[in-house]
Write a protein that binds this DNA or RNA. Structure first.
Lengths: 173, 173
DNA sequence: TTACTCATGTAACAAGTTACATGATTTA
DNA sequence: TAAATCATGTAACTTGTTACATGAGTAA
């Protein structure tokens, strides 16, 4: 049995993506990108990012070299092995096609089970919230790079489809 | 400071939903429902479900009464407090409007970064996978109850929007 | 000089996973 | 009677979170 894990987690894939498409990145920059991203659910917490990168350095997927600056910044880059593994992760159809975790979908079945008056109010609050989320996403669309841009585009598609689902539910009543 | 947590996690909400809309449920049935569900990402593992239910029994959200059967089955039900908390969870617009965790969206930005030939093959594999997922979801639509049905419907909407996103990318090339 | 940001990292904790233990009941 | 299923639960592990420690540089 090989104890070396032969697949990347979602977080590891996301980190490698970040290192790959941005050149001369640091762990800190990766964290920042996660914190800023409105389409990613990770907080970019130090306790997740640093250990994940250390592990991938040990596994030979990432190189980490010290800089001359007094701040102990380390520049990260992918090894050939890291690039291959990232590619496999990006193209894995099984993972990419899975439905993921969606708080809206999780609740959708239960909205039928509550009193109509409460539901109407809840739907109204939801609609407003989603619309303001869309506005925020659209606003960020220009500021951010291409990789994040595609993710945001899909997040907007998702939010719009939620809105039209809500509309349909409301007109059916 | 109150150490008693005043919000439900997604798993706790899902468990309360399951107990509420099915009458006379057991922890085992809840696990089964999660395991079978194609729209939920939890495995319904014993190590997650039993402790979560125990905690909610202790917190006074769920009652658990032994049955006369030799199998040490326990029937679960919501208390009034549990129903209130479930309602709050269902209607929480902040949580419901969040984008969630989506493996497809996470990878979407990176598909531009790989060689066109590899991308085309990856997209073809993805398309086939998604289409078979949709078929499986449609097939389950009849078998399952209303609550799960709504979730599956939304999962189908998601998968179809992924397909049309892929189509758009392919025709743009 | 106080406060904020850059930058890395660890510790305590939370929440999920698999694998196992236990024991009754049903089916082959 | 052997195996599968029903049913509950625990133990070891993984992976994420917040909060803290540490220390350098920058702006008020």
């Amino acid at each position: 049995m090989n104890s070396r894990k032969d697949f990347l987690t979602e977080l590891e894939g996301a980190i490698l993506s970040e290192i790959h498409h941005r050149q001369r990145t640091t762990a800190f920059q990766v964290r920042k990108a996660f914190q800023v991203s409105p389409s990613l659910e990770w907080s970019g917490s130090a306790g997740a990012v640093y250990p994940a990168i250390s592990k991938m350095v040990t596994a030979g997927l990432v190189t980490s070299e010290a800089t001359s600056s007094k701040l102990k910044t380390r520049l990260l880059a992918l090894t050939e092995d890291g690039k291959t593994r990232l590619n496999d992760w990006i193209c894995d159809p099984e993972r990419a096609a899975s439905v993921g975790l969606d708080p809206f979908r999780l609740r959708a079945g239960m909205w039928d089970k509550i009193a109509p008056a409460i539901r109407r109010r809840a739907f109204e609050a939801l609609r407003q919230r989603i619309e303001s989320e869309i506005k925020a996403l659209v606003a960020q669309l220009r500021e951010l790079d291409a990789v994040e841009g595609q993710r945001i585009e899909l997040a907007i598609v998702l939010q719009r489809s939620r809105l039209s689902w809500l509309d349909q539910r409301l007109t059916e009543e």
